[in-house]
Nucleic acid binder design. Structure first.
Lengths: 255, 255
DNA sequence: CCAAAAGTGTTTCTCATACACCCATGT
DNA sequence: ACATGGGTGTATGAGAAACACTTTTGG
């Protein structure tokens, strides 16, 4: 066990009596792996510690915590990330979501409760950086990216949640274009930005029109950096200017 | 007490042990009164039956019920309406939403529970017909429309929920234009449709451009009916064609 | 000099906006 | 005949979409 795990466990123990065992949050963390839209899933173990598959990273909420705080806690426990945008997008609360006996059994073991009643879950969404190897001090040491069209069997209604999340992601990006930059590195090429859009929308985009559009966005600013050591003309790096973004947004929203 | 109230109470008694006292639904039923966007609120009584103000129509969920079912139940108990679109738009779950002592006291009385813990509420939204007088067999005999910029003091975070709902309403109408027809009568004039938009968006619209736009929508079809007995040129009635709407939508969504 | 990706302009079409007058009807 | 609201057309500008060639660099 990694030293910091003990610390985490202690924190959890201290707060355990304050777990509110009726409402959970689940995070659909979308990213890109091998040029395809992917979701980060964590490994699930049975009572004996055997790995029995994957699930969305999630948690019951604590009594003192808002839903957003719980979601950020889960995000951080899973990826170590902190400052990215998380959006609450839907609440899943069908009584039949825990109808599968194995899922229910697992829940009762995991939560150390005799009888788990219905759990309503609030689903959150983020587009997040593809941190390749997660810091083992985080709660889950096994987190893996799965392409959204190759999702393994998942417990509860997690598959349905992921499907809804992919739809929601596209709508969210229209409203709040800044979220792509949660995914991209701080310096990125026009190609990277375009590819990200293409993968999320699952649609090719015209290169020239894309450049034109990008240049019209004041908040995507060219830097003096260019690529190095590539076997073709070097691409320019751009960066996201948050201040300019907020200005342009507020101007836009006044109408 | 109205005879049907007894029936309702019996139904409630039967199901009482199945109330899931951790999650509720609240419905923001928007409509128009006196040419202004308004919300339907129901009267709230204290333990002695004294009326102590208004609140959003809402309810704890039953164990056997999905969230959507609970929301439709509340809609129906409040207005008698059944077949309108309700949209789940956000979950409100801050632990501080029940921080007001009076609100908490009221809750405990209303729910006949000794100790109410945190309640997470799932907020729903609808644009609904302005049924002027509600059938007294419905659960609340006092329901009133309040203009959204003249909301009285409300318990919990209901004011915040209404504000979020108004924003959401506009976004929803862009995505799903059909919902205005939940509000309008089955035959309506161009003026009524335009006024409805103007009030919801709080913005005047050009008459000619509106007609042009409306005529381009295949699913708004002119009928042969025209107004009768008005002291000016009679307006034509239009109707909403749901079949054509779905066709046009699915065509649009394929791209 | 060749392969490989970067970068750049013009035309066309659609859609939103702005704007003013005649029409039908009841009193 | 007049008051009242219903209904119509045209011109302009902005932004989306379609489309092909030259530039730069490493090997």
């Amino acid at each position: 066990m990694h030293p910091s795990d003990i610390e985490n466990m202690e924190t959890q123990e201290k707060r355990k009596d304050m777990l509110y065992s009726h409402v959970s949050v689940d995070c659909v963390l979308l990213g890109i792996s091998e040029d395809q839209l992917s979701v980060l899933l964590v490994e699930r173990s049975d009572v004996d510690g055997n790995k029995i598959g994957f699930k969305l990273p999630g948690s019951l909420i604590y009594d003192t915590e808002t839903l957003d705080e719980a979601a950020y806690r889960v995000l951080n426990e899973t990826t170590g990330l902190k400052r990215i945008s998380l959006k609450q997008f839907r609440c899943f609360g069908s009584p039949s979501r825990t109808k599968n006996k194995d899922d229910l059994q697992w829940l009762e073991n995991a939560l150390k409760l005799n009888k788990v009643s219905r759990i309503v879950t609030v689903a959150y969404l983020a587009l997040c950086k593809n941190t390749r190897k997660f810091n083992p001090s985080y709660k889950y040491d096994e987190a893996q990216w799965f392409k959204v069209d190759q999702i393994p069997h998942l417990p509860f209604d997690h598959k349905e949640i992921i499907e809804a999340a992919v739809q929601e992601m596209r709508a969210w990006m229209e409203k709040e274009p800044a979220i792509v930059f949660d995914y991209l590195p701080s310096k990125f090429t026009a190609f990277q930005l375009r590819r990200t859009y293409e993968i999320i929308y699952n649609k090719e985009m015209d290169v020239r029109n894309f450049h034109k559009k990008m240049n019209s966005l004041e908040y995507v600013v060219p830097t003096d950096d260019i690529q190095d050591g590539v076997a073709h003309r070097a691409a320019r790096y751009y960066r996201f200017d948050k201040v300019k973004y907020n200005k342009q947004r507020s101007k836009f929203n006044k109408n």
